[in-house]
Design a protein around this nucleic acid. Structure first.
Length: 417
RNA sequence: GUGGGUGUAGCCCAGUGGUCAAGGCGCCAGGUUGUGGCCCUGGAGAUCGAGGGUUCGAACCCCUUCACCCACCCCA
């Protein structure tokens, strides 16, 4: 028996209502924030992700699906969305558009070669939003607001918004020096990973979750305390903006995030319960990325949110799906004479915009009715010799059991409610 | 990459060495004349994850392997 690849899941019909709900909510919201939809390929030149996300990050070091295509070019299944959107921005010369360019993606598949776990998959899907071309903190606030409203609209409660500023090329070197100086004396007490991070990616030292390393991170110098003037202004405006919008946040100075391209603002949204992975969504500013990819210096902010984790948390919080009630007619028939009439009737109902199918043929009326009852139909339409003679169809409303005879031509109207 | 747990019909699962592997859900058919949901009856459906070993005999014991789940790590 073949099975879905490890960490990849079928999204079965029964789950689709959750996806639909989230996608509609996100699309409506993005629309209201004037974001326009973009879909990018699920694979790109490996170099795009390697250079943008950072060679020394976990994502690139051990989680990418990379392969050579038949012409020998190295390709990578995208592990995140931002780099690809930036590539598309540059490739299509979107800098000539009024800036910022606001873009979003829906159900965008991402691939990371992790060990699967609750809320973690090798293929997962994100809602993404990127605002490219505006350095103002108001756009950071906007992106965070968009994220926050998405969770709010879906009905999630008790989420935490964590924010931090990790500075920019002007002030980060000094901060990294301070961080290294602080950690230097503690290296012997730190875990192996942290010793490696000390050299390759000192920011990530703060990120270590090991109980032995945590106290050091807690007392480490804070990037937000060492920002240069412009970054400090930006950082302050970000917080002011969030307060104006009454979006509750907590400053988490250990929040650095796992991608190299972030500058200044980073943020994460976390659900109340542990387990099933603690991050629902996150993002930040990446003012250097577009230039790094070969474009003019262009500031940008973005946000990504995991749909599987959204669904996990919606279920966990007992949030109900909005009802999707819709008339659904199933046509049962008896006898050979009725068959063509039933076929035509079902087709007519569909052409009238209704959902309608035939009950399985060759079964007793009882069996057809059983099928209809189990199928989720709202109406059973019955065609037999009696109805045929009169040019009518018996329409039974399943919920109430009421049944009446209706001229064939009136059937669509009788069901439409 | 590391650790723990679990693998018995489509699904949930009972069954820890001995006749045809139990039950529930679901599915199919019936419960007399053309009607669902409740109820009743019957039926189909399992190489007991796979491979090897121990034994007169294994779903049950041992080894190997695979898969899934959970956690670490990391992140969505």
């Amino acid at each position: 028996m073949y099975k879905a690849p490890r960490g990849a899941a079928d999204i079965l019909p029964g789950e689709q209502p959750w996806w639909r709900h989230i996608e509609r909510t996100a699309a409506d919201l993005c629309q209201r924030f004037a974001y326009r939809r973009i879909d990018t390929p699920i694979f790109e030149s490996s170099a795009l992700f390697h250079r943008s996300v950072g060679e020394a990050t976990d994502i690139v070091e051990k989680e990418t699906y990379t392969f050579d295509d038949r012409s020998g070019d190295s390709m990578t299944l995208r592990p995140e969305g931002t780099a690809a959107v930036c590539r598309a921005y540059l490739e299509h010369g979107m800098h000539v558009l009024p800036l910022p360019v606001r873009l979003y993606s829906l159900r965008a598949p991402m691939f990371r070669y992790d060990r699967p776990q609750a809320g973690r998959y090798r293929q997962f899907h994100q809602v993404n939003a990127e605002a490219i071309g505006d350095a103002g903190a108001a756009v950071d606030v906007e992106v965070i607001e968009l994220a926050w409203r998405l969770f709010e609209t879906l009905g999630l409660r008790n989420l935490s918004l964590l924010i931090n500023s990790i500075g920019d090329p002007a002030c980060r070197p000094a901060y990294l020096d301070a961080l290294r100086a602080y950690y230097q004396g503690h290296l012997a007490s730190l875990c192996g990973d942290c010793n490696k991070r000390y050299h390759t990616n000192p920011l990530r030292l703060l990120d270590c979750k090991k109980p032995t390393c945590q106290p050091f991170a807690q007392d480490a110098p804070r990037s937000a305390d060492m920002l240069c003037e412009p970054c400090r202004d930006h950082w302050r405006q970000l917080q002011d903006g969030l307060r104006i919008l009454s979006i509750p946040f907590a400053v988490e100075h250990r929040l650095v995030r796992g991608l190299d391209y972030y500058t200044r603002t980073v943020f994460e949204v976390q659900p109340p319960e542990e387990g099933g992975q603690s991050t629902l969504g996150g993002g930040g500013r990446y003012d250097g990325l577009i230039q790094q990819l070969g474009g003019n210096p262009t500031p940008a902010v973005g946000f990504a949110c995991g749909i599987e984790r959204l669904i996990l948390n919606l279920k966990r919080q007992g949030i109900a799906l909005p009802p999707e009630s819709e008339a659904f007619a199933v046509v049962a028939c008896m006898g050979d004479a009725a068959r063509p009439v039933a076929l035509k009737l079902a087709a007519d109902l569909r052409r009238a915009g209704l959902r309608a199918v035939l009950a399985p043929s060759g079964k007793s009326l009882k069996a057809q009715m059983r099928y209809i009852g189990a199928s989720g139909a709202t109406h059973a339409l019955i065609l037999g010799d009696d109805e045929l003679r009169q040019g009518v169809v018996a329409i039974k409303t399943l919920a109430t059991g009421d049944q009446r005879l209706v001229p064939l031509a009136d059937a669509p109207a009788a069901i439409a409610l």
